[in-house]
Amino acid sequence: MHAHNAGQAAKVRCGLCSVTRFYKPAELREVYGNVTIREIGQKMRCMKCDKGEYMDADLLVPLGAEAISIKYRRLVRIEFLRHIVWRDEP
């Protein structure tokens, strides 16, 4: 069973600047593919300090007041950047 269907939330925390964000597991799966939650923590970068080595991710089941108070970071769109490189002929 996928974590999203089990009602779980992904908690991603930067150990350097102590920023914690919550994500829907289905959206993380769309971005990073079918990987474990530990691998997601290794692939993400903190948007505040722009470092990736301090990231930690875990799954949790929000209950009661916690389930109501969580503010999720939602996926809006995925953009691909096209980078063009030129070279001069000798």
Rank of each mutant, 00 (worst) to 15 (best):
F80N: 04
A3M: 10
A9F: 12
S18F: 11
K71D: 07
D56S: 12
A67E: 09
E30T: 12
V85L: 14
S18I: 04
K43W: 06
G41S: 07
A26R: 09
A9H: 11
P25V: 00
K43A: 14
K43G: 02
Q42S: 15
M47Y: 06
P25S: 08
T36C: 13
Y23E: 00
K24W: 01
K11F: 05
N5V: 12
M44V: 15
L16I: 03
E30F: 02
P90Q: 10
F80I: 05
L60W: 02
V85S: 15
I78P: 06
M55A: 03
E79H: 12
I70Q: 03
E66M: 10
Y54A: 02
C14G: 01
R45D: 07
G52F: 05
P25G: 09
Y32A: 13
V31Q: 07
I84Y: 02
G15K: 08
L16T: 03
H4S: 15
A67H: 04
D50P: 00
I68P: 00
K43R: 15
H4N: 13
G15W: 06
V85Q: 15
I37C: 10
A67C: 01
A65F: 05
V85D: 14
N34K: 11
L75Y: 08
T20W: 02
D50W: 06
E30Y: 04
W86I: 11
Y54D: 05
R45L: 12
R29M: 09
A67V: 00
D58N: 11
L16C: 04
R38F: 06
K51I: 07
I78W: 01
L59Q: 03
A10S: 10
K71H: 10
I40M: 14
E79P: 04
A65E: 12
Y23A: 05
K43I: 02
P90I: 07
L81P: 05
